Amino acid sequence: MNYRERIRALREDNDYTQTYIASILNVGQRTYADYELGKTRIPVESLIKLAEFYNVDMNYITGLSNTITPFPR
């Protein structure tokens, strides 16, 4: 699973809308949709925000690991 699939799955598993997650990242809904579709590369800073928001480590959110480990605090 790559980061596009992972951020979509995390959003859907938590019943969040693209608009809500976009507001957390301070981007428009269309921009966030493009992140999920792979039309636009998501900035590393945004991946970090999402990992912290969902409380998962970066290896999980980027698809390098399938094991959920809490975001390091």
Rank of each mutant, 00 (worst) to 15 (best):
M1D: 03
M1G: 14
M1P: 07
N2F: 03
Y3Q: 11
Y3S: 11
R4A: 10
R4S: 12
E5I: 06
I7C: 02
R8M: 11
R8K: 14
L10N: 07
R11F: 04
R11E: 09
R11H: 05
R11C: 09
E12D: 04
E12R: 14
E12N: 03
D13R: 14
D13S: 13
D13K: 15
N14S: 13
D15S: 12
D15K: 14
D15I: 05
T17A: 06
T17E: 00
Q18L: 06
Q18K: 10
I21Y: 04
I21P: 00
I21V: 13
A22E: 04
A22L: 05
I24Q: 09
I24A: 06
I24L: 15
I24G: 00
L25W: 06
L25D: 07
N26L: 01
V27P: 00
G28W: 05
Q29F: 02
R30H: 02
T31W: 04
T31H: 04
T31D: 02
T31E: 08
T31F: 01
Y32M: 07
A33F: 09
D34I: 00
D34Y: 08
Y35C: 12
E36H: 09
L37G: 10
L37S: 13
G38E: 08
G38L: 05
K39L: 12
T40E: 10
R41Y: 08
R41M: 10
I42M: 15
I42G: 00
I42S: 02
P43V: 01
P43I: 02
V44D: 08
E45A: 12
S46L: 01
S46Q: 13
S46M: 07
L47M: 15
I48L: 13
I48Q: 13
L50G: 03
L50Y: 09
L50T: 05
A51G: 11
A51S: 13
E52W: 01
E52Y: 05
E52A: 14
F53H: 10
F53Q: 03
Y54D: 07
N55D: 15
N55C: 07
N55A: 10
V56Y: 10
V56C: 08
V56G: 08
D57L: 08
M58E: 03
M58A: 10
N59H: 13
N59Q: 11
Y60H: 10
I61V: 02
T62Y: 03
G63M: 02
G63W: 02
L64W: 01
S65L: 01
S65K: 05
N66M: 09
N66D: 13
N66V: 02
N66G: 12
T67M: 03
I68A: 00
P70W: 07
P70T: 00
P70V: 02
F71T: 08
F71C: 03
F71W: 15
P72K: 11
P72Q: 09
P72E: 14
R73F: 06
R73Y: 11
R73N: 12
